[in-house]
Design a protein around this nucleic acid. Structure first.
Lengths: 353, 353
DNA sequence: CTGTTAGCGCCTTCAT
DNA sequence: ATGAAGGCGCTAACAG
């Protein structure tokens, strides 16, 4: 019923003008110590919080954001997902005076990452969203951001104590643990499990290795594990390697700790393989398709669109001064997706709009 | 880079004042047909969309919302969840000129619902969030809303063709299907399944029956199903009935299509029962506790806080004229929660703040 | 050190 | 039928 207190209210109560109140609120310009205290006290008593809409409306200069993430150059459809979140954020922030520059690099090429970072005029931005796939290469850029006091957030990959104001990603190890639990439920007879990795993607090894580690950690000793590295850039693959492996042994569980479960589901369905528990990652169309057909048993989802959306929003709120400065590490839920619930995850159900 | 077009831009281009533009935008007052057309054309060409922040800022009258949902009078902790979402929405909308009135009723008493509805001065509100637990009793109130042209949304329970602008809830049948699938994975030896309902909650029978129907529909003929109705208001329960049932038969699966799985987990753990697959609903603390202890195998979650949050936001956006008038039916994802991923769902991970 | 003023984009009242 | 002006809460430039 009672309206929120405004700086005008505070000014009246303190017997000063709104200009002075604004000055103490932003530590801008000199203010008499006594009036400063008086105003601060009133602010605290009344629990004043600024009206962000009004603030954004009145801000002269626009907020400029740099977004530095991989694209799908190496044919990985996963990276479209974070872009969906970015685009949603852009749309939602179009009411404000904001400005976005997207910088894409090839996630499979460190050189591409280095080149892109070198091309980003950091000082021209008020906030940066970075996916630091290559840690070493990112460090110098990060230092630039820190010295220039430009706030930045990470998505997907984290770097500890880098000075970022937030991180949005997944707990990769735990997702592997969950994959193991799910597989245990599906496998009862023989217990031969295949883990398939991509040999040409050592780049992502950190996440992938974490997933594998979690899986191995929880699957139990009574499972026989075979690990296979396949170069998916070879058009003969994964058929050649898988065919070879299957000649030697029957597998009833396959864990694919990356986004390309569909490649193996393609193979399995072509071979007419049945009763294999296939567990993969990410709700890309190809995976969803195979999930519905029964060629994939489970998909683990980490809501990459939500991650990037939240990352932008954090930057925005931080720049508007709403957020406290404490760092925010946000681990997405590890969604367990099966044929029967996938439809309810397909559309960006998490957004407010 | 280029700023959004404002009504001032349009006015300039059309050679009129912003007042006239505003009039055609809101069909307010008479405008010369020709200038009307000219302005409309410019609006369409430039793809003008109003700045909601500015609109909200300038609105004199505050938007008044009525929220009519159950509380926890009947000791059902579930209903706190929607309130969490409501409170978050209230907090987020506090920047705007909004005003909320919460009306609680006892979800187990139709009379309580009727009384509360009678006490709501509908005409004093600009939007209503209603949980129409009792359909018949709700219809008259709904008619009032319709005749007064007050927009309203449903959460949890839906009523078809009621004139609501949205519904946020779950697909109860499908959640039962999923429960069946999960149980199939956990049960391999004997296949005796118990379904436990609350006899004093016939009220919710629609949702509950849908869940049971979905479960029965998918569990398969090779499972023997026993259905039990228990009056949980009796302090002897559920121990008495469960003890009785277990004397007659061993169960290795229990499906509890309501929020009170923890009551049965209490019993099971006290009895030292092991190797029973218990599937329940909702992430209330008591359930989470038992999930972590291993007394509950799966919890299905429908994000009730997200539902109510979105419902309020829909009303708000509708009143600001942003949303199209088409009705929005939003079915929440059916989250599969196990011990290993529950921690990532505990905190309202879905919010932007 | 402090007050005044002109907007940001939109709505609304009051003149014309 | 249309324009002008004030105000929502806040920022920032300017004048004392």
């Amino acid at each position: 019923m009672k309206k929120r207190v405004s700086i005008k209210d505070i000014a009246t109560l303190a017997g000063v003008s709104i200009g002075t109140v604004d000055r103490v609120l932003h530590n801008r310009g000199e203010v008499n110590a006594e009036t400063h205290n008086r105003i601060m006290q009133i602010i605290n008593e009344l629990g004043y919080t600024p009206n962000l809409q009004a603030k954004a409306l009145s801000m002269k200069k626009s907020l400029r954001f740099a977004v530095i993430i991989p694209d799908s150059q190496d044919n990985n459809p996963y990276w479209q997902k974070p872009m969906d979140g970015i685009n949603l954020a852009i749309a939602e922030l179009s009411n404000y005076n904001t400005n976005f520059n997207i910088f894409h690099f090839d996630a499979s090429s460190e050189q591409s990452f280095i080149n892109v970072l070198a091309s980003v005029p950091a000082n021209e931005f008020d906030g940066v969203l970075l996916c630091p796939v290559f840690k070493q290469a990112a460090l110098q850029f990060i230092q630039t951001l820190n010295t220039q006091q430009i706030p930045f957030v990470f998505i997907d990959v984290n770097i500890n104590n880098a000075g970022n104001i937030g991180y949005f990603g997944q707990d990769a190890f735990q997702s592997g643990v969950i994959a193991a639990r799910l597989m245990q439920k599906d496998i009862h007879t023989s217990r031969n499990v295949l883990i398939v990795k991509q040999s040409n993607h050592k780049i992502f090894s950190n996440h992938i290795e974490q997933r594998v580690a979690g899986f191995r950690n929880s699957i139990g000793n009574d499972y026989r594990i075979t690990e296979l590295e396949i170069d998916l850039s070879d058009p003969q693959e994964p058929n050649a390697s898988l065919g070879q492996a299957l000649k030697q042994q029957q597998f009833n569980g396959i864990f694919i700790p990356n986004t390309r479960a569909f490649r193996f589901a393609d193979f399995a369905s072509a071979q007419g393989l049945k009763n294999i528990c296939v567990i993969g990652y990410d709700l890309i169309d190809e995976n969803i398709d195979h999930l519905k057909k029964g060629n994939i048993s489970y998909l683990l989802n980490q809501r990459p669109d939500e991650q990037s959306y939240k990352a932008i929003m954090l930057l925005f709120n931080y720049l508007l001064g709403q957020k406290e400065i404490k760092q925010i590490d946000n681990y997405s839920p590890i969604d367990i997706i099966i044929k029967e619930n996938v439809d309810y995850y397909s559309h960006a159900n998490w957004t407010n709009k």
